[in-house]
């Protein structure tokens, strides 16, 4: 077998297709992401980018094709199983827990790695209290890294838009993922915030040693930080390569101009 020698990819999509009634939203897509890679996924509106995220995270099951993560097939696994295996995401339309505080939004995600269950929360013994303190410490550490610590007791939905986007990233990171999917993290951000975001995404990749798949409409941002870019149009992969190759690709130019 190929095994160890090959640079084993973390995420692998083979021939993945999904149809919604008559509409083929994603068609025979091949996609690989290696450990520690930062890959961009771009394409015009309705190209199928968010659908690819939903396929990877188990929100949708593919009509045909195969997806595997960390060398194991993901067929039939639900979103919460895949989160446990190490896939985390943010949402194009921010989905924070609106009745929880900033701190608790992240704490809810941190529970993934605490095996304390109902009974422990009732008995509240020493192990439970120490566990809760440890989680609180980790949550605060994450919030501080992203300069959100000062908002810890604010309601999540009261934050400015850009901060809500960053809080969603922090929440995703609190699950300690191997792969992070970011769906248009720069949407609604001003130019200064976008520059800061680019720095942040690189920082996350290095500091947490994870792979990132980035969907983003801001071309400058994508070209600047991605090592490899995949272009979708009407659910079909029309190009793949480094930023320069993609920028010059006539199919890509046509897809964007024709849009």
């Amino acid at each position: 077998m190929a095994g160890q020698g090959m640079s084993a990819s973390l995420l692998q999509l083979e021939n993945v297709t999904i149809r919604f009634g008559g509409l083929t939203a994603v068609s025979e897509l091949d996609l690989q992401i290696g450990a520690g890679e930062l890959v961009g996924l771009i394409g015009p509106n309705g190209a199928g980018k968010t659908t690819v995220f939903n396929l990877i995270t188990g929100v949708y099951q593919p009509t045909a094709g195969k997806i595997s993560f960390a060398s194991a097939p993901t067929a039939k696994l639900k979103a919460h199983h895949l989160a446990r295996r190490g896939i985390a995401r943010t949402f194009q339309n921010i989905r924070l827990f609106s009745s929880l505080t900033v701190f608790d939004n992240v704490r809810a995600a941190a529970q993934l790695h605490c095996e304390r269950r109902v009974i422990n929360s009732l008995w509240r013994g020493r192990a439970f209290r120490e566990g809760e303190q440890e989680i609180a410490r980790q949550v605060m550490e994450l919030l501080e890294i992203f300069q959100l610590g000062k908002f810890r007791d604010e309601s999540a939905k009261s934050l400015p838009y850009g901060d809500q986007r960053r809080l969603e990233i922090v929440r995703a990171l609190a699950t300690k993922p191997k792969l992070l999917l970011l769906d248009e993290p720069a949407a609604g951000m001003n130019p200064t915030e976008k520059v800061e975001l680019a720095r942040l995404i690189r920082f996350i990749k290095d500091k947490f040693q994870i792979s990132i798949l980035l969907v983003e409409h801001d071309m400058q941002l994508v070209m600047e930080i991605c090592e490899r870019i995949v272009v979708l149009d009407y659910g079909i992969k029309i190009a793949e390569g480094n930023p320069d190759e993609v920028r010059k690709n006539p199919k890509v130019i046509a897809a964007y101009l024709g849009d």
């Binding site: 304390r116 929360s121 809760e132």
Partner: peptide, 24 residues
């Protein structure tokens, strides 16, 4: 009010987001 229990409110607020962080 436990870390585990934040999951109840997470489910109440948004089931899709809740499952994305491993809450069933």
């Amino acid at each position: 009010n436990s870390t585990y229990g934040r999951g109840f409110i997470a489910v109440h607020d948004d089931e899709i987001a809740a499952s994305s962080i491993g809450v069933n």
